[in-house]
């Protein structure tokens, strides 16, 4: 593997991890917004409880993705920063407002009006951020930076539904039993069906407006990866219905990886379709090698810390709180 390929894989990894962890986080906000029925309050509490300890760590994956891009592929980074200025700026506003609103809400529980406002801000910005990140991805894939094109917008919608699906699955094991659990099991199945529909929209639009992209997706190995994603989606529904919570997580992870890998594979060898290949946009080899070494060293600290974080909060609380 060449250093550039290594850097490309790290970029894919960062985007995948952000889609899974950050996506679960965004989706949590979407479900918070959609919390309805007699158990709305319990649903919200389950969401707050599930994402509270991990949301800040989850969002570092985005910063990591940005850093990979500007360190290893600065020319592509500069180009898409200009071309995708509007959707990225809007997504950024969403990311900022939701993070702040989420934490502020935790410390404003005794103020009904402010707390309600913050809940709305948290929910709405949780929709805005993944929508415009998806839109940015769609406009990048179109090769035209056409962020208001129907194709880009439909990818934005797809992004929101994907986040909602990942979050529903994530919450299945966070709330291992009871009525709220059943709510999220039903939602997992419904939102997976919705994801299929949401996936058909950009595919249909692409038939009309994105011939280049369509041709790229018709390559056999890309089609194979897309099939994996679709099969994983079916698996999510079956496993969720059977109550295999941890396996459902695995399936939804596989599905997300396959969706993003299909996108990366369809675009390859281009990083910005029609403008730059990975080779054209890459930093000198010395930079990329130094970066990969830094990633390896960083991982030595990062992985045990992450394992500790998720291990501690996956465990039930040992004794009732001493209050």
């Amino acid at each position: 593997m060449t250093p550039i390929e290594g850097a490309g894989l790290v970029a894919l990894l960062a985007v995948v991890l952000y889609a899974i962890f950050g996506g679960a986080d965004f989706g949590g906000g979407v479900w918070d917004l959609l919390a309805t029925g007699p158990r709305a309050r319990e649903q919200r509490e389950a969401i707050t409880h599930a994402i509270g300890p991990v949301w800040e760590a989850n969002h570092v994956w985005l910063i990591f993705a940005v850093v990979v891009l500007f360190t290893c592929f600065p020319i592509a980074f500069a180009d898409l920063s200009v071309g995708l200025f509007p959707p990225l700026t809007i997504a950024l506003v969403g990311i900022v407002l939701r993070g702040a609103a989420f934490v502020f809400r935790n410390y404003a529980t005794d103020e009904a009006r402010l707390s309600t406002t913050l809940t709305v801000v948290f929910g709405v910005s949780s929709l805005i951020a993944p929508f415009f990140l998806g839109d940015a991805a769609g406009s990048l894939a179109s090769g035209r930076y056409a962020w208001l094109s129907p194709f880009a917008l439909s990818i934005g919608l797809f992004g929101v539904v994907l986040c909602a699906q990942v979050a529903a699955v994530f919450l299945l094991s966070e709330v291992p039993s009871g009525a709220v659990h059943d709510d999220f099991r039903r939602r997992t199945i419904r939102v997976t069906l919705a994801l299929w529909l949401a996936g058909l929209i950009p595919a249909t639009i692409a038939l009309v407006s994105e011939p280049r992209l369509l041709a790229a997706f018709e390559r056999p190995y890309v089609l194979a990866i897309v099939s994996v994603a679709m099969l994983a989606g079916i698996l999510v529904m079956i496993l969720a219905a059977r109550g295999a919570n941890n396996l459902t997580r695995f399936a939804v992870g596989l599905e997300t990886i396959a969706i993003l890998a299909a996108w990366f594979a369809a675009q390859a060898p281009d990083i910005v379709p029609g403008r730059y290949t990975y080779m054209d946009a890459a930093s000198p080899a010395s930079t990329i090698v130094a970066f990969l070494i830094a990633v390896a060293c960083g991982a030595v600290f990062l992985i045990p810390s992450l394992v500790l974080l998720f291990a501690i909060f996956k465990r039930p609380i040992p004794a009732p709180p001493p209050h």
Partner: peptide, 22 residues
């Protein structure tokens, strides 16, 4: 221009910040 040159400290900062957030 600078991304390739100063990406390294930014990457290391990313990891340090990650540990902080965790």
């Amino acid at each position: 221009y600078a991304g390739a040159i100063v990406g390294l400290p930014f990457s290391l900062e990313g990891f340090a910040f990650f540990i902080e957030a965790i």
